[in-house]
């Protein structure tokens, strides 16, 4: 439609001006401005360029403002290590504990959120009676509307003692004794329940709407002929979902997971309120930890030394790059799904 319009209006703008052979300058300016189209197009173009520059400026500012820290610590700043130091007094900074905390909590959140989101998407698209579909969709999306700090407050006073501590203690007693994965589930749980596990669970709740919504759209986009083909061969509904629909939408679902992961990585307030904010050496999910966003939130306003300030900006830069890469990957996957689908129509 827009192309069409473009053709129509393009005819007005360009063709009327071009054939006029070298009119004098004033006349030409007059013609350009009479319709007001050139200034209008110029305006919306300048604003668009501004948006693009804004996106680039975020990256560039983070790069510039972290120069001292990058210069002083190099790659060591980001490298995995068992005894990292984050020492504002002596101006020595290594970000690994935060990176580890962010990655571990986000991945674990995805592991929990993915099956639930898949279940929601399948229920909404394939099973749910029509009258229930809209209210349920809204309710799931409202989960994403509740402010992060409210999740945090509820987390500290209700979710931690009632849900996280019992689950954590149970995991410590069971999985904690296994040889390899035991390190991930080593106890004891802290009394308050503040831990990486708590952060993961809250994150899972917060990213379920994102993953469920995208996955739902993926299922809605699958042509009905695929369902009919499978059912007509004598598949049960579940076999159709599991063996036809999920493989069909797999890259779209992967895109949904990546978008969810992006949200989890950058989530700040709720995580800061329940993760415990501690740089201890333990790798365990059940121990308090720290995340990249949390350390920025807690320390940036009070960072006195220049290097401390720059180190925090560098953590932000790392976070920005991670979400940028995930975003590009997700768009690529979604784009691939979109470009593959039309083939099916050829007949």
């Amino acid at each position: 439609m827009w192309k069409h319009w473009q053709a129509v209006s393009g005819g007005i703008v360009n063709k009327k001006i071009k054939p006029a052979l070298k009119p004098n300058r004033i006349l030409r300016l007059h013609r350009i401005f009479r319709h007001g189209d050139r200034p209008w197009q110029g305006l919306i173009m300048v604003v668009s360029i501004f948006i693009i520059v804004l996106m680039a400026a975020i990256g560039w500012m983070l790069w510039r403002e972290s120069s001292g820290a990058r210069f002083t610590f190099g790659w060591n700043f980001l490298a995995p290590t068992t005894n990292a130091s984050w020492d504002p007094v002596n101006d020595h900074f290594q970000a690994w504990p935060f990176i580890y905390g962010t990655l571990l909590t986000s991945l674990f959140a995805i592991i929990i959120a993915l099956p639930i989101s898949l279940g929601i998407a399948i229920f909404l698209v394939e099973l749910c009676p029509a009258w229930l579909r809209t209210p349920l969709t809204w309710m799931v999306e409202l989960l994403a509307a509740i402010p992060s700090v409210v999740y945090g407050l509820w987390g500290i006073f209700i979710f931690l003692p009632v849900v996280v501590t019992p689950i954590g203690s149970f995991l410590a007693e069971t999985l904690g004794n296994f040889p390899v994965i035991g390190a991930l589930f080593a106890g004891p749980m802290s009394a308050s329940g503040a831990s990486r596990l708590a952060a993961s669970l809250i994150l899972a709740i917060m990213i379920i709407p994102t993953i469920a919504a995208v996955t739902r759209d993926v299922f809605l986009a699958i042509p009905n002929s695929q369902r009919e083909a499978s059912l007509a061969l004598g598949s049960t509904r579940w076999e159709t979902i599991w063996k036809v629909l999920i493989p069909y939408g797999l890259s779209g679902i992967l895109g949904a997971v990546i978008l969810g992961l992006g949200r989890a990585l950058g989530e700040t307030m709720a995580v800061t309120m329940v993760i415990g904010n501690s740089i201890e050496g333990s790798l365990s999910l059940l121990r308090p930890g720290y995340s990249m966003a949390s350390v920025i939130a807690n320390e940036f306003a009070e960072a006195v030394s220049k290097l401390h300030n720059q180190a925090l900006v560098e953590v932000g830069l790392a976070l920005f790059v991670m979400t940028l890469l995930l975003n590009i990957l997700a768009r690529f996957l979604v784009w691939r799904v979109a470009s593959r689908t039309p083939q099916e129509v050829r007949a």
Binding site: F300, F320, T323
Partner: peptide, 19 residues
């Protein structure tokens, strides 16, 4: 750019505005 902006963590936007 719009896609990327929507994915930028809000805390990072805070750092940017500070700078």
């Amino acid at each position: 750019s719009t896609d990327v902006l929507s994915g930028v963590p809000s805390i990072v936007v805070g750092l940017f505005a500070y700078a």
